[in-house]
């Protein structure tokens, strides 16, 4: 199966035009790095865009404790309080956790 070009073109942090993500990806632990069963706390969002606004509204907010319930393909099931939210890894990489 050939991969679409779209997926190879994930933007690097330093590419962001607004410059909010000046820290390099290596230093920042993001939600994408977590494994199934891991728990963490959301520290910050590395971007402000519609996807981030949406997940914030859905309950993934700064300071919230999260648990990774399942990962499959690009999908990640994140549990926080009583809600379970599926996000894709291209959104997860913009969520800084500790």
């Amino acid at each position: 199966m050939t991969t679409f070009r779209d997926y190879s073109g994930e933007k690097k942090m330093t590419d962001t035009p607004d410059g909010t993500a000046s820290r390099s990806a290596a230093q920042t632990k993001t939600l994408k790095d977590l494994l199934v069963g891991d728990s963490a706390q959301i520290v910050d969002f590395l971007k402000e865009n519609d996807a981030v606004r949406k997940i914030e509204a859905m309950g993934l907010r700064r300071g919230k404790k999260i648990t990774i319930m399942q990962k499959m393909g690009r999908g990640i099931v994140v549990k926080t309080s009583n809600s379970r939210i599926v996000i894709t890894s291209d959104v997860a990489k913009d969520i800084e956790v500790k």
Partner: peptide, 19 residues
Amino acid sequence: LRKTAYRGKLSHFVMELPP
């Protein structure tokens, strides 16, 4: 359609799984 009219990046996806 993906190969012709609708090329481009597949957008992210965000969705709730209700209990």
